[in-house]
């Protein structure tokens, strides 16, 4: 068959599509059918089974903040995944407590997903509750006022638009909060 494919275009087309489709279907359609946790929201009330908590759908305000996050391309510089690497769990951690790793069930309400590919800035998967709104306002106005040496761009049009700013902070404060992992519920507002 393959030997004939360089003389007969129809045989070629059929083979090229079949070759591609085997891997194509097995790696896209099959995985969510096999691994149900991809589509089920995180929920656990038994501390013996790891972190407790329940993933909540986003409110309208949080979705608005999320849309700004997408629009401004924050995701080109920030990832949202605490990987199965010791350093990641420490960097996402809080006051000496390591953060749990990210699992698929924490992201079922994310559309578009914001996992990201590049860490020009720190990972934000557990940033919810790390800073208060005032910190974020100053940071958006000029990141270098708070963190000298930062290369994050200023976002005055977010900081100076009250509605947008509140929405953005509301979204950022949800990140990583499905799992209730910080001792004594110690989260900034």
């Amino acid at each position: 068959m393959i030997a004939k494919s360089d003389k007969n275009a129809t045989i070629f087309i059929v083979l090229a599509v079949i070759f591609f489709m085997i891997g194509g279907l097995l790696t896209t359609v099959v995985p969510p059918l096999v691994d149900r946790s991809w589509g089920k929201a995180f929920e656990n009330s038994d501390p013996a089974k790891g972190p407790t908590g329940k993933l909540q759908p986003y409110t309208e305000q949080q979705l608005k903040g999320r849309a700004i996050y997408v629009r401004e391309g924050c995701w080109y510089c920030h990832t949202q995944q605490t990987r199965t690497l010791l350093a990641d769990t420490k960097r996402s951690g809080w006051r000496g407590v390591d953060s749990p790793v990210s699992t698929p069930d924490e992201f079922v309400y994310d559309n578009p997903h914001m996992f990201g590919t590049k860490r020009t800035g720190p990972d934000l998967s557990r940033v919810g509750g790390k800073y208060d709104a005032q910190w974020h306002r100053t940071h958006f106005k000029n990141p270098r006022d708070l963190v000298p040496g930062s290369i994050m761009p200023p976002f005055p049009w977010i900081a100076n638009n009250e509605e947008d700013f509140q929405a953005m902070v509301a979204y950022l404060q949800t990140l990583g909060r499905g799992k209730n992992w910080r001792p004594e519920n110690d989260f900034e507002k």
């Binding site: 070759f19 790696t27 995985p31 590919t117």
Partner: peptide, 19 residues
Amino acid sequence: LAFFYVWTGAHHMLHGPIS
């Protein structure tokens, strides 16, 4: 190329929250 390439997408999420 036709057979091998398409299987590799998930290597963008190694160590990440994917099976």
